Amino acid sequence: MNSLLFLQRHLHLSARTFKKTPRNLKGKSSTEQRWIVRQLSDPFVKAAHVHNYRCRSAFKLLEIDDRYGLLKPGFSVIDCGAAPGAWSQVAAQRINSVGTDPGSLVGFLVGVDLLRIPPLDGAHFLSNCDLTDSATQTELRYLLPDGVADVILSDMAPNASGFREMDHEKLIAMCLCVVDFAEKVLRSEGALVCKYWDGSKAGQLQNRLANIFREVKVVKPKSSRKESSELFFVARYFKKQ
């Protein structure tokens, strides 16, 4: 199913939503013009505005969760690299952390990022905090009910340097830190989703996940741009030691 059909089927958007909006590009650099044109022609950007998601990345998590059913009412979830909060919006809805569904269990959501994360109902955010810092990890464990999480999400990424392999290695290192943390806090049979950029170190990360989870899948969501090397590992059924 292509991206447009996915949106229309799952989000009930009309064709009018996808029409390109004219914009005055005078005075913009060629790079800025390309970015603006890409944004204007991107149906997921438009759908994010329609559905009040903070950015288009929300649809990546929606697709992953629709396929694997990771987020359930009553679950405790950690969102790593949460800013600006689009994944947290999806997670809060699906785990019922706001408590808007009186017939379901109420979940708990905590997000962490080096950047400031705007407040969100149903989420506790640790802004300007480094997940790799032991003090941050201690605070996360303190906040979690019973000190454990059912699902860990990571959409973290380093600032791109323009050197693809270097950026890839940095992101793999960040993912490995998330895996280290997951081993400390994830509940038995829990799940982990982490973004990575394809490259020479991906196998190292995949092998590490395969050692502690009973199932590891590689996913390229339809909402992930085709030209991007972005992929996601979806690891399920954590083997708690």
Rank of each mutant, 00 (worst) to 15 (best):
K26N: 11
V219D: 04
V151K: 02
R16S: 14
N159R: 13
I152K: 05
G162T: 02
M1Q: 13
V219S: 02
A202G: 06
L144K: 03
N207E: 12
E215A: 12
S134Q: 08
W35G: 09
D121R: 08
L109E: 04
F108H: 03
N2Y: 04
L140M: 05
Y196N: 09
T21H: 13
R236A: 03
Y237L: 12
G199Q: 02
T21P: 04
P119M: 03
M1N: 08
R54W: 00
M156Q: 08
R9V: 13
L186A: 06
F181E: 00
G162F: 03
D198K: 14
R67A: 13
C80H: 02
V50T: 08
L62N: 03
P158L: 10
L61W: 06
I78T: 02
E63G: 09
R116Q: 15
D101C: 11
D121L: 12
K222W: 10
E215R: 15
I78L: 06
L114P: 12
R94L: 15
Q204R: 15
N128C: 08
G122M: 11
K217W: 04
G147D: 00
C194I: 13
A83T: 00
G147V: 11
H12E: 15
A173M: 06
P118W: 00
A235H: 03
A202N: 09
N211S: 11
I117V: 14
V148M: 10
F44P: 03
A48V: 03
L11P: 07
Y53K: 02
I172M: 01
G199E: 00
H10A: 14
V45K: 04
S97K: 05
L71K: 06
I152R: 09
T31K: 15
S29I: 05
G27L: 10
S14W: 07
I64K: 01
K19P: 00
Q204L: 13
P102K: 11
L192E: 07
D150M: 06
I152G: 07
D155P: 07
L5I: 09
V193P: 09
F125R: 06
R94D: 03
T21I: 12
G85C: 05
A58W: 11
V216R: 05
R67K: 15
V234H: 01
D121T: 11
E215H: 15
L120Y: 01
K28S: 13
R16L: 15
A83E: 04
M156L: 14
F233V: 00
Q33A: 14
G122C: 09
I36W: 06
Q33W: 00
N207R: 08
I172K: 02
M174T: 01
S127K: 02
P221S: 09
L40N: 12
N96T: 02
D121S: 13
V90M: 00
E227A: 12
S3V: 14
V106G: 07
A123F: 09
R94H: 06
A82G: 10
D65S: 01
K46N: 00
S134F: 10
K46W: 00
Q8L: 07
V178T: 12
G99T: 02
P145Y: 12
G122P: 04
E227T: 07
N211P: 01
M156A: 11
H168F: 03
L109P: 13
A157Q: 05
K46P: 02
R164A: 13
W197T: 08
T17A: 08
L153K: 02
E230G: 07
A157M: 05
G111A: 04
R214I: 04
D155V: 06
D198C: 15
A123W: 10
Q39Y: 10
K195S: 06
K19R: 15
A210E: 15
M156V: 08
